[in-house]
């Protein structure tokens, strides 16, 4: 079953949702928002994508492996950033003295916070879409639980 109105609207709207998600994600250290909020917005756009195009003959679908990679990759990125602190013989998750802190209020500032937020965003977006698809496929019977 295809619906032209739905597909066209989705095609127009999804990039903007994702752009907004990226904005919230990148400005996590400057404005309210951040990893979880931005990640959820991007995840929501992916849900919309798979809801609209899933039932089309082309079988668009975010592959399981891709979402898994995002999910695990985001968390691993976070942990590695934290471990950098230990590598520089400071404490876990140290920010000051390792990363350039920049000028407060500018986009590239706050040291590793941007990177960590990005990791969280990846993780959340991956998790949201995985949850949606696995629930759709029947409580995770095919892939096990998440």
């Amino acid at each position: 079953m295809t619906d032209m109105v739905l597909e066209t609207v989705a095609r127009i709207i999804i990039p903007f949702i994702q752009l907004f998600g990226a904005y919230v994600l990148m400005h996590g250290h400057l404005t309210p928002g951040g990893g979880f909020s931005g990640g959820t917005i991007i995840g929501a756009s992916l849900i919309l994508y798979s809801m609209v195009f899933r039932f089309s003959p082309r079988k668009h679908r975010i592959e399981h492996d891709t979402s898994l990679l995002f999910e695990a990759g985001g968390a691993i990125l976070y942990i590695l950033m934290g471990l950098l602190g230990i590598l520089f013989s400071k404490s876990f998750l140290t920010n000051r003295g390792i990363f350039p802190l920049g000028v407060p209020g500018e986009l590239i500032s706050g040291g590793m916070i941007v990177v960590i937020t990005l990791g969280i965003g990846m993780k959340v977006a991956g998790t949201v879409i995985t949850l949606f698809q696995e629930l759709l496929e029947g409580g995770g019977e095919h892939h096990g639980h998440n």
């Binding site: 409580g139 995770g140 019977e141 998440n146």
Partner: peptide, 23 residues
């Protein structure tokens, strides 16, 4: 914010279990 994330995962997990129970 953390609490909401936890609540979300609990809900999603519970829904998954409910689907299996219904099956």
């Amino acid at each position: 914010l953390t609490g909401i994330v936890i609540s979300l995962s609990f809900t999603a997990f519970a829904l998954g279990l409910v689907i299996l129970l219904y099956k």
